[in-house]
């Protein structure tokens, strides 16, 4: 898994190219992700990278930007 794959996944989920242009964008503030989007994200993370993130561990303050999500996933690999 690399940064690029995470960004691609997020572009597909949020249907917005802005994620590649600005990987420090706050996904929740900008309305790109909500609780429903989060679930799809967790399912995709498990399918693509085989990393299981419990919902209770997904803290919006720490998982709010594409770069941070990539960082968090790298930690868990």
């Amino acid at each position: 898994m690399d940064q690029q794959q995470v960004l691609e996944m997020l572009v597909e989920l949020c249907e917005d190219e802005i994620i590649v242009e600005n990987p420090d964008i706050d996904l929740f503030e900008e309305g790109l992700l909500d609780s429903f989007g989060t679930i799809n994200l967790l399912v995709e993370i498990e399918n693509r990278f085989n990393i299981s993130v419990p919902i209770t561990d997904f803290n919006r303050e720490e998982w709010n930007t594409p770069n941070r999500i990539a960082g968090k996933l790298a930690e868990r690999q």
Binding site: S35, I39, I55, T56
Partner: peptide, 13 residues
């Protein structure tokens, strides 16, 4: 949100 909605949606998905 975290303990009802998200858990339910994840489980159903």
């Amino acid at each position: 949100r975290d303990y009802v909605y998200m858990r339910f949606v994840l489980w159903m998905t």
